[in-house]
Design a protein around this nucleic acid. Structure first.
Length: 663
DNA sequence: GGGTTCTGGACGG
DNA sequence: TTCCACCGTCCAGAACCC
């Protein structure tokens, strides 16, 4: 603790020695609507006093030291730039700006609408006794939003409730009720739809509307549209909102914040007016520039406003990855699909592995249910952990096939977690990404191989296995695991039972769950002989047509691989899909089908020849070698990451790229 | 060398 | 006395694979 404070103070100004809170960077003093008159120093002091000494605080100090190191590094790089370098980078920046200018379209009118203290306003609407009293939606741990009465005390979203209590002892807490907020959000969206049927909802309480057409069609100004829309929202919901109108979404969002609450601000579609507007605009107002980036830009380049950003564009080009400077794009929004889905839970820090398992079960079921709702399957599973010291770690696993069932998710999540044990945690989360939407009830196989793949010797074995339900597949994943530690009971249990249910899609595209095989089933368990000691499933289960299950035997272990174990017969399922590996070939591809059958024959012979070797290891030699070399490492796969402090680039262009995404 | 995966981090609501 | 969320997006850099 003393050490971390020392680290922090070494990087802060000497004037903060007697006032240590001044160097404690939080997001809570960032100007937010309704907080203009707040005593920032008092807030900073209270936050510091309430936080210091805690594990959270120590972690913040660690991060702060990291950022300070980064700043020092960049200052050194900046000092090394000579006039020739700068002149070069200036021309690069000028060129980039000219390109953006050329592609800019200032004829559109974007309106950003933002509900005022939305959650708090909805709560007050449904419980008028809260009116005029400082109130926050959230818990003692974390506040989602605060009303304007509470904001006067410095209470704001993302602030822990216990700190908010200190700032405002009369503060009333109201638990979040998303059903209610969704209901009111839907009402507002009905109004938005009247102005732009393709409006873009940014969250429950924010939306972007392209009002160019409605202005033209009705022959009214953008100011009139904004005014009318806000009135209609109020009529429909009883809630107030604020609006901003500008030629692009980034600027519209900045504008909607200017006259909050219950106001609007319009930026003319005129280049000179826009340049004047942004010249004094603090960089922090730009979406994507947060606490850290603001600090870096200020401490390394003395950049505080957008004008500074333009003036120092040569430095930015020199020290950051290719960036753009300007007002951003004016494109119409694209339809964006979901990239990931996650859930996570915080709890009191513990080392209890049974508790971790229970959490994983809950999270797996929640994630599976969420994916089911959106008819998604995913193939990358990420385990998120927050240690007792607030350090966040993620461990990901990309599978060869798409999964959705809670059982599959739990199985893989458990493996990821097991590699981290023992550990003291305060949060566990699961995220699924790399989606394949099964709108028509079918899933494409991301790893489906072409015939050429099969020609490669020794590289086809995995195709013989039902990838979604066999642990053989796991060896072809990016992580390799060995199940040598039976100490973790829940994991052993999982390995024993996780294969009991086969999930698949039926012909109508509905997901079905079948017990593995009635003959193989004893009560609710599968005969243990069907699984080897490592939890490897030795039967391939295939659903044929609607009801018939066919079991195809594979060698139970590497020494028992004899032809007598191979009962498989190649059948073209539904007249196009290979029953052995799933490759799809239409009936007209006679030559290819013959070649494919020959491959399986050759493959079978090869397996027999190689029976003395583990066929599982063949395609994985390199990985396995590496795994062996990394014994004792929890991850055992990658070398420790180099410190990003040494990296040249920082995602500065993220502001611009991100901004244009939001535009 | 290019594509993919993994990891940590910033950011916003 | 203690107590700092949850969910989603995007990015950089390193490692790895082909």
């Amino acid at each position: 603790m003393a050490k971390s404070e020392e680290t922090s103070s070494s990087s802060s100004s000497s004037s903060s020695v007697g006032r240590p809170w001044e160097s404690y960077h939080t997001v809570y003093t960032n100007a937010k609507a309704g907080m203009e008159g707040v005593d920032k120093e008092k807030v900073q002091r209270v936050v510091y006093e309430m936080s210091k000494g805690s594990k959270y605080f120590q972690n913040e100090q660690r991060k702060e030291a990291f950022i300070n190191h980064k700043i020092q590094n960049m200052r050194a790089q900046r000092a090394n730039l000579n006039p020739t370098h700068l002149s070069h980078y200036q021309s690069v920046a000028d060129k980039r700006i000219a390109e953006l200018e050329a592609t800019r379209d200032l004829t559109r009118k974007w309106l950003h609408v933002d509900m005022d203290a939305f959650y708090a306003a909805v709560e007050t609407l449904t419980n008028p006794s809260l009116k005029g009293r400082p109130m926050a939606v959230g818990t003692i741990s974390m506040i989602s939003t605060a009303n304007y009465e509470a904001r006067k005390f410095g209470v704001r979203a993302a602030m822990p409730g216990f700190i908010a209590c200190k700032l405002c002892p009369e503060l009333i807490f109201v638990p979040t009720d998303f059903k209610k907020y969704t209901y009111y959000s839907d009402l507002t969206r009905k109004v938005f739809q009247e102005y732009d049927p393709n409006f873009m909802a940014a969250s429950l309480d924010e939306a972007y509307l392209d009002i160019t057409n409605v202005c033209k069609e009705r022959g009214i100004t953008d100011a009139e549209v904004a005014e009318e829309l806000r009135q209609n929202v109020y009529k429909a919901t009883g809630l107030t909102c604020s609006a901003g109108v500008a030629p692009n979404r980034l600027l519209a969002k900045v504008c909607s914040d200017i006259n909050k609450p219950n106001g609007q601000f319009l930026l003319p579609n005129d280049r000179a007016a826009i340049m004047t507007f942004i010249s004094s605009l603090p960089i922090r107002k730009i979406g994507g520039i947060g606490k850290v980036t603001e600090q870096i830009l200020k401490d390394v380049f003395e950049i505080k406003t957008c004008e500074d950003l333009l003036q120092k564009s040569s430095f930015l080009c020199a020290l950051f990855s290719p960036s753009s400077a300007g007002l951003g794009g004016t494109d119409a929004p694209q339809v964006r699909s979901r990239k990931s889905m996650s859930n996570e839970r915080t709890f009191s820090a513990t080392k209890d592995e049974t508790f971790f398992h229970q959490k994983l079960v809950e999270l797996s079921e929640m994630l599976s249910a969420d994916m089911e709702k959106e008819r998604l399957h995913g193939r990358t599973l990420t385990l998120k952990l927050k240690t007792a010291s607030f350090e966040v770690k993620t461990r990901a696993l990309t599978l060869q096939s798409y999964i959705r069932s809670s059982k599959d998710i739990l199985k893989h999540a458990s493996k990821l977690l097991k590699a981290e044990l023992p550990v003291s945690l305060r949060l566990i989360g699961l995220r699924m990404s790399h989606f394949n939407e099964d709108k028509d009830g079918t899933l494409s196989d991301p790893t489906q191989r072409t015939l050429l793949n099969y020609i490669k010797p020794g590289d086809g074995n995995m195709n013989l296995v039902d990838e979604e339900h066999s642990d053989l597949k796991d060896d072809s994943e990016s992580h390799c695991y060995t199940y040598t530690d039976p100490s973790c009971d829940f994991l052993s249990e999982l390995n024993d039972n996780s294969e009991q249910v086969v999930e698949h899609n039926d012909l109508e595209g509905h997901e079905c769950k079948d017990q593995i095989s009635e003959s193989a089933q004893v009560g609710n368990t599968v005969k243990s002989s069907e699984f080897d000691a490592q939890g490897t499933e030795t039967h391939l289960l295939e659903r044929r047509n609607q009801d018939q299950l066919t079991i195809i035997d594979f060698p139970e272990n590497e020494t028992e691989s004899t032809s007598s174990h191979h009962k498989e017969v190649l059948i073209w399922l539904e007249d196009y899909k290979c029953s052995l590996c799933g490759v799809e070939l239409p009936p007209s591809f006679l030559a290819e089908r013959q070649e494919h059958a020959d491959f399986h024959l050759a493959e079978k012979m090869q397996m027999e020849e190689e029976s003395a070797h583990s066929y599982r290891n063949l395609p994985l030699k390199n990985r396995m070698r590496q795994k062996e070399a990394g014994v004792g490492q929890s991850k055992g796969k990658k070398k420790p990451k180099h410190s990003p402090l040494n990296g040249k680039h920082i995602p500065i262009d993220a502001f611009f790229t991100k901004a244009s995404h939001n535009l």
